[in-house]
Each structure stands twice: as structure tokens, then as C-alpha cells.
């Protein structure tokens, strides 16, 4: 199957190879949570809720009492994929993604400022169309910033792949399941540091670098957007407060 049209250079959903899907971020969607966000990348739709910092509920999980405990739970809604299937809570895929998100977010949260407390991040995929991992990280960042949790930097994530000898930015489900390489990159946008790098399949060294550069560019574009959303929200809250 052709994933990039050789004549026009467009992809299956009509994008250019280095074009991202449309982004949409909304803050404050869960009223009971301390911070919450909805993040959309094209048809991928993710909701994130943050509770905390709050008292540690299970003392045995506490590793050291100088830092906050960060927990994360990733879930896919039953209606999120094409075939409606009951997804068990503790399957390996979601456990792995939970861990990935937790580690990525923990790298940017200033946990030493909130000792004796825990932060819970819940992310749920409402619509899955490739790149749920990236979308979840972006949503979690928005939600954490909304909850007023101090962070070193904005963490954003974006995926890129290599199909039909073209590097492609922000793969959708069809491209994702094509069997080519899928590189998910998470960066601290301003400090320019990588906090997450995952790849399935193999890529030659030089191609990998171009693909990763493309993904990093995507991350930066997302970071700019996320900061716009947050600044807009902050200004609005401050104006209304009076």
C-alpha cells in the first residue's frame, strides 16, 4: 500500500509528510479534579485529570519522604477503537504506557517541593487514532500545569515514522499499523532535553536522526501551542478574579 502518494507527495489523510494533525487543547474539563485537560491531535482524543498534591493514601508505596510520589494510570475507553472490546485494566500495554507517562512526567515535576504527598495522574483515551502515547503526555502536561504543580519545563511528545522512504510526522492509526518504524519522542521543550525516546522496528542510523529531528520539531510546535493555551487560561482567570 502507498502511504505517500508518489505524484503529489500527500499522505493517506491528505497531509504533507512534515505536517501535524490539528491540535486542540482545553483546560478545566473535570470539575472535581485539581487540574484537568482535554487534548486532541486530529482524531486522537485524550482526557487527563490530576489529583493532588494530597496526603499519601498507601504508605507502603512511599519510597522516600523527601519527595512527592507520582502515580499514573492510563486507560483506553471501550469505545475508543473501531472494534468495541472490553479492555481489562491491568493489561501489559496499558501498564507499560502508564509507566512511560509516569517517568516522563516525573522528570519535569519538582517533586522535592512537595514532601509527604502524592500526585495522581489519570489519563483516558476517548478516541484512538494513533499516537495515543504522545497525546496522553501532552494532556498530562496541560493538566499538571492547570493543577498548579511546579514543573521544570513543559514536557511535550510527538511521534514520527518512516514509510515509503519518507520521514513522516505525527502518524495516524493507518500509518502506525503499517509496520514501519514508529519513533515517539518526549522533550523538555525549553531546556531541549529528551525525556522519552521509544522506537519499534529498526532504522538505519542516519535515517533515524532525520526522523528524530522531525519528531523534535513536532514537540516544539506542540509546546508553543500548549503554552498559548495555558497563558490564555491564566489571563482569563486573573481578569475574572478582578
Amino acid at each position: 500500500m502507498e502511504y505517500v502518494n508518489p505524484l503529489t507527495g500527500f499522505r493517506v489523510d491528505g497531509r504533507r509528510p512534515n505536517e501535524m494533525r490539528q491540535l486542540k487543547g482545553e483546560v478545566g474539563v473535570v470539575s472535581r479534579a485539581d487540574g484537568s485537560a482535554l487534548f486532541e491531535m486530529g482524531n486522537t482524543r485524550v482526557i487527563a485529570a490530576v489529583y493532588g498534591p494530597r496526603e499519601i493514601q498507601n504508605r507502603s508505596q512511599q519510597q522516600n519522604n523527601k519527595e512527592a510520589l507520582v502515580r499514573c494510570e492510563y486507560r483506553m475507553a471501550e469505545f475508543s477503537t473501531g472494534d468495541r472490546r472490553r479492555k481489562p485494566k491491568g493489561d501489559r500495554r496499558s501498564t507499560e504506557i502508564s509507566l512511560v507517562i509516569r517517568q516522563t512526567m516525573e522528570a519535569s515535576i519538582l517533586t522535592h517541593l512537595m514532601p509527604h504527598s502524592q500526585i495522581d495522574i489519570f489519563v483516558q483515551v476517548l478516541q484512538a487514532d494513533g499516537g495515543t502515547r504522545s497525546a496522553c503526555i501532552n494532556a498530562a502536561t496541560l493538566a499538571l500545569a492547570d493543577a498548579g504543580i511546579p514543573m521544570r519545563d513543559i514536557v511535550t511528545s510527538c511521534s514520527a515514522g518512516y514509510l515509503c522512504s519518507t520521514p513522516l510526522l505525527d502518524l495516524n492509526y493507518i500509518e502506525d499499523s503499517a509496520g514501519g518504524a514508529d519513533v515517539t519522542v518526549g522533550i523538555l521543550a525549553k531546556m531541549d532535553k529528551v525525556t522519552l525516546l521509544q522506537m519499534d522496528a529498526k532504522l538505519p542510523m542516519d535515517t533515524f536522526e532525520t526522523v528524530m529531528d522531525l519528531a523534535t520539531e513536532g514537540c516544539k510546535a506542540i509546546a508553543t501551542y500548549i503554552r498559548e493555551v495555558l497563558l490564555e487560561n491564566t489571563k482569563q482567570l486573573e481578569c475574572q478574579r478582578g
Binding site: M151, E238, G242
Partner: peptide, 22 residues
């Protein structure tokens, strides 16, 4: 009404707004 509130707010308030990593 919300727009009115936004215009009434002192310009300094919205200029001093920052986000993470600003």
C-alpha cells in the same frame, strides 16, 4: 460581559501572567 471584564482588568495584570518555563 466576560469581554467587558477583560477590558476592565488593568493591563499590567495580563502582562504579568506567566506559564511554566517562561
Amino acid at each position: 460581559a466576560l469581554h467587558e471584564l477583560q477590558t476592565l482588568a488593568p493591563a499590567a495584570a495580563s502582562a504579568a501572567a506567566v506559564t511554566v518555563a517562561d
